[in-house]
Amino acid sequence: MKMTDLLTEDCIVMELQGENRDAVMEELIDCLDRAGVLSDRETFKNDLYAREKHGSTGIGFGIAIPHGKSAGVKEPRVAFGRKPDGVDWDSMDGEPANLIFMIAVPEEQAGDEHLKILQALSRKLIDDSFRQALMEAKTGQEILDRIGEM
């Protein structure tokens, strides 16, 4: 399994429309739903919000990673959206989030390959130049290329 198995071009939103966190959440959940990875949209959504409640997933540096390990998810998948103006995510550093990775992980999943990939992505996000490249990418394919380099 590669990162590009988890993030596909149909789950990349070059410019998110939503102006607040909830709207952006909906957009990305829709992506995942359209990709057919959700068995129960509401359950997944509830699990996402439960995680946000525990502490915002806006980790700063303009990144938010809403994620849910949920019974409403059939297979692991990532949706990615960009918001050049940023959207308030109640981040640690008070800065708006520009890069939003929504991570869907099934409650029960054989093997942990997908977790290893998400781990690699998380570690990579700490890298300034990687974030910069994601911001500057012109096409979905370019983003996939950058992420595929991991």
Partner: peptide, 17 residues
């Protein structure tokens, strides 16, 4: 972290760097 999917590893990476 609670889910153990992302923050755990971001923090690890950041601390190491």
């Amino acid at each position: 972290c609670p889910n153990g999917i992302a923050h755990t590893y971001m923090a690890a990476e950041k601390l190491a760097k």
